[in-house]
């Protein structure tokens, strides 16, 4: 166990290693560690911000959904109202149309009846004339009594 120049050798080696470590080892690794620390801190902050934004977005979405629901129900009620209106309107139109059809039918019927009556009248006149002619053919002259017969026809 002798104290000798190994002492000096050790001291020099020691200083050399410390110097090397100080220059080439510690700063890059420390820098990387600090950088990562900063990255993680940034990441956490971003996550926090994201969560906050998500909350806001959810709130906004809820609001939009609410509005949409209101709007939808309004539209539905409007549509119902409009539907009722249309049905009412259609009912009115149908009644008027029906009445029109009925009255026109009545007018036609009356017209037909009048026409039939006129025809009947002419035919009755002709039949009466024929009957009277047959009855009176021997004693009454056609020409002498036609005026009288015409007058009779018009009176029917």
């Amino acid at each position: 166990m002798n104290i000798n120049a190994t002492l000096i050798g050790q001291a020099i080696a020691f200083l050399f290693f410390v110097g090397f470590c100080m220059k080439y080892v510690w700063p890059p690794i420390m820098q990387a560690l600090d950088e990562r620390k900063k990255k993680i801190a940034d990441g956490l902050a971003a996550a926090e911000r994201g969560r906050h934004e998500q909350e806001l977005a959810e709130k906004r979405a809820q609001q939009v959904i609410h509005e949409a629901k209101d709007q939808a129900s309004e539209i539905v009620s409007q549509a119902q109202r409009r539907g009722n209106e249309i049905v009412d309107e259609a009912k009115g139109t149908a009644r008027i149309e029906g009445e029109r059809i009925v009255s026109s039918a009545r007018a036609e019927i009356e017209q037909e009846a009048n026409r039939a009556r006129d025809e009947l009248r002419v035919q009755v006149g002709a039949v009466a004339l024929a009957g009277a002619g047959k009855i009176l053919s021997r004693e009454i002259d056609d020409k002498a009594h036609s005026d009288l017969l015409d007058e009779l026809v018009s009176q029917i």
Partner: peptide
């Protein structure tokens, strides 16, 4: 004093170099 322990120097420097 002016002698040197070669084994001590060798091992310590080798380990130091390994570490570095």
């Amino acid at each position: 004093f002016w002698s040197i322990h070669v084994d001590t120097m060798f091992m310590s420097i080798m380990l130091g170099v390994l570490m570095m």
